[in-house]
Protein backbone atom coordinates (compact mmCIF):
# COMPACT_ATOMS: atom_id res chain seq x y z
CA UNK A 1 0.00 0.00 0.00
CA UNK A 2 1.49 3.33 -0.99
CA UNK A 3 1.34 6.64 0.84
CA UNK A 4 -1.57 8.07 -1.17
CA UNK A 5 -3.80 5.02 -0.54
CA UNK A 6 -3.29 5.21 3.20
CA UNK A 7 -4.26 8.88 3.30
CA UNK A 8 -7.29 8.33 1.03
CA UNK A 9 -8.58 5.42 3.13
CA UNK A 10 -8.19 7.28 6.43
CA UNK A 11 -9.83 10.41 5.03
CA UNK A 12 -12.69 8.31 3.69
CA UNK A 13 -13.25 6.59 7.03
CA UNK A 14 -12.86 9.52 9.41
CA UNK A 15 -13.79 12.52 7.26
CA UNK A 16 -13.50 15.92 8.94
CA UNK A 17 -11.89 14.57 12.08
CA UNK A 18 -8.64 14.17 10.16
CA UNK A 19 -7.12 17.61 10.54
CA UNK A 20 -4.12 17.24 8.28
CA UNK A 21 -2.60 14.52 6.13
CA UNK A 22 0.54 14.67 4.01
CA UNK A 23 3.62 12.69 3.02
CA UNK A 24 6.83 14.17 4.46
CA UNK A 25 8.97 11.84 2.33
CA UNK A 26 9.10 8.52 0.53
CA UNK A 27 7.33 5.80 2.51
CA UNK A 28 6.29 8.29 5.19
CA UNK A 29 2.73 9.32 5.98
CA UNK A 30 1.81 11.95 8.53
CA UNK A 31 -1.77 12.22 9.78
CA UNK A 32 -2.98 14.67 12.39
CA UNK A 33 -6.26 13.78 14.05
CA UNK A 34 -8.45 15.00 16.91
CA UNK A 35 -7.52 13.43 20.26
CA UNK A 36 -10.95 11.79 20.65
CA UNK A 37 -10.42 9.55 17.66
CA UNK A 38 -6.66 8.97 18.09
CA UNK A 39 -7.04 5.44 19.43
CA UNK A 40 -9.73 4.62 16.90
CA UNK A 41 -7.48 5.71 14.01
CA UNK A 42 -4.56 3.68 15.37
CA UNK A 43 -6.87 0.66 15.71
CA UNK A 44 -8.10 1.15 12.14
CA UNK A 45 -4.56 1.42 10.74
CA UNK A 46 -3.41 -1.61 12.74
CA UNK A 47 -6.35 -3.91 12.03
CA UNK A 48 -7.83 -2.84 8.71
CA UNK A 49 -4.81 -1.41 6.91
CA UNK A 50 -2.57 -4.23 8.17
CA UNK A 51 0.12 -2.07 9.80
CA UNK A 52 -0.08 -3.86 13.15
CA UNK A 53 3.57 -3.26 14.02
CA UNK A 54 3.87 -0.32 16.41
CA UNK A 55 7.41 0.93 16.17
CA UNK A 56 7.20 3.75 18.69
CA UNK A 57 5.11 6.26 20.59
CA UNK A 58 6.72 9.67 21.01
CA UNK A 59 5.76 12.86 22.77
CA UNK A 60 6.63 16.47 21.94
CA UNK A 61 6.21 19.67 23.91
CA UNK A 62 4.62 22.21 21.55
CA UNK A 63 4.32 25.10 24.01
CA UNK A 64 0.67 25.25 25.09
CA UNK A 65 -0.04 21.72 24.04
CA UNK A 66 1.63 18.34 23.99
CA UNK A 67 1.78 16.18 20.93
CA UNK A 68 1.56 12.40 20.90
CA UNK A 69 2.76 10.48 17.87
CA UNK A 70 2.15 6.80 17.21
CA UNK A 71 4.40 5.33 14.56
CA UNK A 72 3.10 2.24 12.77
CA UNK A 73 4.10 0.01 9.90
CA UNK A 74 6.99 -2.03 8.55
CA UNK A 75 7.53 -0.56 5.12
CA UNK A 76 5.44 2.60 5.05
CA UNK A 77 5.85 4.55 8.28
CA UNK A 78 2.45 5.91 9.29
CA UNK A 79 2.69 8.67 11.90
CA UNK A 80 -0.57 9.37 13.69
CA UNK A 81 -0.33 12.64 15.58
CA UNK A 82 -2.62 14.40 17.97
CA UNK A 83 -2.40 17.53 20.13
CA UNK A 84 -3.64 17.54 23.71
CA UNK A 85 -3.80 20.55 26.07
CA UNK A 86 -0.91 20.90 28.51
CA UNK A 87 -3.16 21.62 31.50
CA UNK A 88 -5.08 18.39 31.01
CA UNK A 89 -2.67 16.01 29.26
CA UNK A 90 -4.77 12.87 29.00
CA UNK A 91 -5.12 10.42 26.16
CA UNK A 92 -6.31 6.85 25.70
CA UNK A 93 -3.67 4.19 26.10
CA UNK A 94 -3.03 1.91 23.13
CA UNK A 95 -1.94 -1.05 25.27
CA UNK A 96 -5.18 -3.00 24.93
CA UNK A 97 -5.06 -3.00 21.13
CA UNK A 98 -1.26 -2.98 20.71
CA UNK A 99 0.68 -4.46 23.70
CA UNK A 100 3.92 -3.11 22.25
CA UNK A 101 2.81 0.35 23.39
CA UNK A 102 3.42 -0.53 27.05
CA UNK A 103 7.05 0.56 27.43
CA UNK A 104 6.84 3.43 24.94
CA UNK A 105 3.87 4.98 26.72
CA UNK A 106 5.55 4.61 30.09
CA UNK A 107 8.54 6.48 28.67
CA UNK A 108 6.40 9.31 27.29
CA UNK A 109 4.50 9.47 30.56
CA UNK A 110 7.64 9.86 32.64
CA UNK A 111 9.48 12.27 30.37
CA UNK A 112 6.58 14.52 29.36
CA UNK A 113 3.90 13.94 31.96
CA UNK A 114 1.26 12.73 29.53
CA UNK A 115 -1.28 10.50 31.29
CA UNK A 116 -2.32 7.44 29.34
CA UNK A 117 -5.77 6.40 30.49
CA UNK A 118 -6.17 2.70 31.31
CA UNK A 119 -2.45 1.94 31.13
CA UNK A 120 -1.89 -1.34 33.02
CA UNK A 121 1.30 -0.44 34.93
CA UNK A 122 2.23 3.24 34.87
CA UNK A 123 5.03 2.87 37.46
CA UNK A 124 8.48 4.39 37.16
CA UNK A 125 10.67 2.59 34.65
CA UNK A 126 12.95 5.04 32.87
CA UNK A 127 13.86 7.84 35.27
CA UNK A 128 15.95 7.18 38.40
CA UNK A 129 14.20 6.35 41.66
CA UNK A 130 15.18 9.66 43.28
CA UNK A 131 13.88 11.82 40.42
CA UNK A 132 11.43 14.40 41.87
CA UNK A 133 7.72 13.90 41.19
CA UNK A 134 6.13 16.28 38.74
CA UNK A 135 9.35 17.23 36.94
CA UNK A 136 9.22 16.26 33.29
CA UNK A 137 12.65 16.56 31.67
CA UNK A 138 11.54 16.69 28.04
CA UNK A 139 9.22 19.64 28.57
CA UNK A 140 10.64 22.89 27.29
CA UNK A 141 10.41 24.62 30.68
CA UNK A 142 12.87 22.13 32.14
CA UNK A 143 16.39 23.45 31.70
CA UNK A 144 19.14 21.03 32.72
CA UNK A 145 21.84 22.28 35.05
CA UNK A 146 25.34 22.27 33.69
CA UNK A 147 28.07 21.39 36.15
CA UNK A 148 30.70 24.11 36.56
CA UNK A 149 33.86 23.41 34.60
CA UNK A 150 36.82 22.22 36.67
CA UNK A 151 39.63 24.72 37.04
CA UNK A 152 43.26 24.12 37.82
CA UNK A 153 44.03 24.57 41.54
CA UNK A 154 40.47 23.80 42.55
CA UNK A 155 39.46 27.46 42.87
CA UNK A 156 35.84 27.96 41.81
Amino acid sequence: MNEGDVIAKIREKFGDKVLEAYTPGTRRVSIRVQPEIYKEVVGYVANDLGASFLSCVSGIDRGDSLEVIANLGYSTCILIKTLIPKNNPEIDSLTDILPAADLYEREVHELLGIIFKNHPNPGRTFLPEDWPEGVYPLRKEYVPEHPKPLRRGGKD
Binding site: C56, A100, Y104
Partner: peptide, 26 residues
Protein backbone atom coordinates in the same frame (compact mmCIF):
# COMPACT_ATOMS: atom_id res chain seq x y z
CA UNK B 1 14.48 4.99 14.46
CA UNK B 2 15.55 8.61 14.70
CA UNK B 3 12.86 11.27 14.39
CA UNK B 4 13.64 14.94 14.42
CA UNK B 5 11.63 18.13 14.26
CA UNK B 6 13.20 21.38 13.17
CA UNK B 7 11.86 24.85 13.94
CA UNK B 8 14.28 26.52 11.56
CA UNK B 9 17.11 27.00 14.05
CA UNK B 10 20.60 25.61 14.44
CA UNK B 11 19.46 22.99 16.97
CA UNK B 12 16.74 20.39 16.57
CA UNK B 13 13.46 21.34 18.26
CA UNK B 14 12.96 17.74 19.32
CA UNK B 15 15.02 14.66 18.66
CA UNK B 16 13.55 11.24 19.33
CA UNK B 17 15.55 8.01 19.34
CA UNK B 18 13.99 4.58 19.54
CA UNK B 19 16.62 1.91 20.05
CA UNK B 20 16.05 -1.75 19.10
CA UNK B 21 16.64 -3.11 22.60
CA UNK B 22 13.71 -1.10 23.95
CA UNK B 23 11.50 -2.62 21.28
CA UNK B 24 12.67 -6.13 22.14
CA UNK B 25 12.24 -5.83 25.91
CA UNK B 26 8.49 -6.41 25.81
Amino acid sequence: IHYSISDGGTNPFRYRVRTPTLANLA
